[in-house]
Amino acid sequence: MNAGSHISKGLVLKIHPDANEGLVRVGGFTVPFHDTVAPHDARATVVLIHGTGGNARTHFHTLFPMLAAKYRVLAVDLQTPREGLTLGTFSRQVAGVIEHCVPARSVHVVGYSLGALVAADLAASNPHTLASLTLVAGWTKADSQQRLRNRIWMRLFETDQDLLREFATWTAYGHPFLAGRSEADVRALVEARVFPDGIAEQMKLNANADLCGKLASITAPTLVVAGAHDQMVPTRQTKLLFGGIPNARYAVIDSGHAIPQERPAQLFQIINEFVTDPESVPAGEIRERMFV
C-alpha cells in the first residue's frame, strides 16, 4: 500500500507527532501501524480501521489527532493480497496488530466503511478483545442497489479511470457537502482521488462480504453510525446492522459516505461519548440529534 512507501521516504509528515510507526508480521503480511503509545500511558486505546482504497492517513487524518488528545490511538494500514481476499484476511491483520501493541488489554474498535465490516468480523471472532465496537457507514451484505454501483465502478476502473474519479467523488460525498463547495473545490476532490494497489480486490469484497450470520454473536456494546445522505451505504443498510447486533445503539450524522472527511469533529464527539460511557445511549435506542 502507498502508506508503506511514504514511511520509507520519510518526507511525509506522521499522522500525529506522537504516533510511533511500526510493522507487524501477520500471516504472510507485513502490516504497518501508527500507535501513540507512551510510557505509563494508562488511557484507553481506540483502534481505527480504514475503508476501501484508503489507509490510516487518508481516512483518519483529522479523526486521529482529535482522538489522540484523549486516548491512545492505534491505526492499522490493511494489506491486500493479489487474490482470495476475505474479511478474515483483514480482521486477522487487525487482531495481530492489537496483540502486538496492546497485548491482553481490551480495546475500543472503530471501523469505517469496509473497515466496519472488518471490525464486526473481528468482534464476532474475538469477543474478549473488544471493550466496545463502533461501526461507521458499514453494511451487512451488499443489496442490489449497492451491487449496481459496484458494477459501474468496476467497469469504469477497467475502461476510464478519469471518469471513475468523478463518479467515485460523486458517490462518496453527501449532496449538501458537494453543493456547498465551489467548482474548484470539487475539482480538487476529484483530482485527489487515487486508486491504490488492491482496491479492485477490496471492491470485490465489498460486493460479496456477508456479515448476516455473525451479527447475533457480537457481544461488545456497539454503536452504529449512519450518514443520512450516504449513497454508497444507504441508511437501510446501517439500520440492518443496528437491527442485527443485540447490544447496539444508532446515531445519524448529516453526511454522505465520507463521514470522516465531511464531519470528523462530530464523529469524534459521538465516538468519544460512546467510548466514555457505552451505555449513555441504552442498547436499542437512537441517539438524539446533537444540539448546536
Binding site: L13, K14, P17, T62, P65, P176, D254, A265, V292
Partner: peptide, 24 residues
C-alpha cells in the same frame, strides 16, 4: 438548523489544527 449544524461542525474541524498536528 441543518445549515447551522453544517457550519458548526466544519468550524469544529479546524480545532484539530490548533492541537499542533503538523499534517493539519
Amino acid at each position: 438548523q441543518e445549515l447551522r449544524e453544517e457550519m458548526f461542525w466544519s468550524n469544529e474541524e479546524r480545532y484539530a489544527q490548533r492541537r499542533g498536528t503538523p499534517t493539519l
